[in-house]
């Protein structure tokens, strides 16, 4: 299956570049050390560098941020193609709703996805076991057949366990986790939803967080980032996978996703029509807060 997807991806990428439809195809390649990493293909001849397997976990939508504003005044933004899993397309959907990316500037090569594995294992990531869409909600071209995988039910077990702790226990838990943070911002930089020109964590005027790499600043940064992703986090796990300190960031994001789902019956990026609840204002809205 992976192999036929890989062949189809290469063919499609080559065609798009040969026809001049796009200036670059963003996909995956294998590094000389054998690990999969993001790839930028500019020449049709390089299309064979593209690979597909169950370790293509990076959310490539993050690279569309670089390309959303003209590099120099007056210069056209070149159209690019991007390889996108169903979760990645949901992230793109969030960006489209927020007016961050022009749809016509991106050619979406959707991939039917059987799920990504935990690093170094053949075991599906938890989020992939729960995944409800194996085919992206939209695309310009689809590669692969919808896989026959039955999703396990979302029971929020990890979040429920956290909710079961006392406040003091929860504080102790997160203190231990956030304490390891080195404020490298890999989580934020890997996140398609984090595109602020100036993050509140680095803003100096007004100074929200400050420069110290200490527990209060770390905790504040992570909690604020999670809030800023409320109703926007698509659970691609890019943050957690990028974190060099193994902080369980998805747990934090999932807690908020659970609240958003309970309050609004909304899953981030889930459908192209419904705008995100926290970017919507309804006069008659009442929430059970």
């Amino acid at each position: 299956m992976s192999e036929s997807i890989q062949t189809a991806l290469r063919t499609r990428a080559r065609e798009l570049l040969e026809l001049g439809e796009v200036s670059c195809v963003i996909g995956y390649e294998r590094s000389p050390r054998g690990r999969v990493r993001p790839a930028f293909i500019y020449e049709p001849a390089d299309a064979d560098r593209l690979v597909w397997d169950n370790t293509c976990h990076h959310n490539l939508m993050v690279y569309l941020h670089d390309r959303k504003t003209p590099p120099r005044r007056g210069e056209e933004v070149p159209r690019v193609a991007v390889v996108a899993k169903p979760c990645d397309v949901r992230a793109l959907n969030v960006l489209l709703h927020e007016g961050q990316i022009a749809r016509e500037k991106v050619f979406v090569i959707g991939v039917a996805c059987a799920g990504m594995c935990e690093e170094g294992t053949e075991e599906l990531q938890a989020r992939c076991r729960r995944c409800r869409e194996r085919v992206p909600i939209f695309y310009d071209a689809l590669v692969g057949e919808p896989p026959k995988v039955t999703a396990v039910d979302e029971d929020w077990a990890d979040v429920v366990e956290l909710e079961g702790m006392s406040a003091a226990e929860r504080l102790a838990f997160w203190t231990r986790e956030f304490d390891r943070c080195i404020r490298c911002y890999a989580c934020r930089q890997a996140c398609p939803g984090c595109y602020c020109f100036e993050c509140m964590a680095e803003q100096v005027d007004p100074l929200w967080v400050g420069i110290a790499i200490e527990l209060p600043e770390k905790a504040f940064f992570h909690v604020m980032r999670a809030y800023h992703l409320a109703g926007r986090c698509v659970e691609c796990n890019a943050c957690e996978l990028a974190c060099p300190m193994h902080i369980p960031l998805s747990l934090l994001n999932r807690k908020i996703a659970k609240e958003v789902e309970a309050l609004f019956g909304y899953r981030a990026g889930g459908d192209p029509q419904t705008p995100p609840p926290l970017a919507t204002f309804r006069k008659d809205e009442e929430l059970p807060l």
């Binding site: 993001p38 993050v62 080195i182 490298c184 911002y185 420069i211 060099p244």
Partner: peptide, 25 residues
């Protein structure tokens, strides 16, 4: 081309034994 995939995070510089850039406030 090399930097295409760079995320502009600080990870490489913070784990590095010789990177020493700092801020003061």
């Amino acid at each position: 081309r090399l930097s295409d995939r760079c995320l502009s995070c600080h990870a490489c510089t913070y784990v590095c034994p010789t990177c020493r850039c700092f801020d003061v406030r």
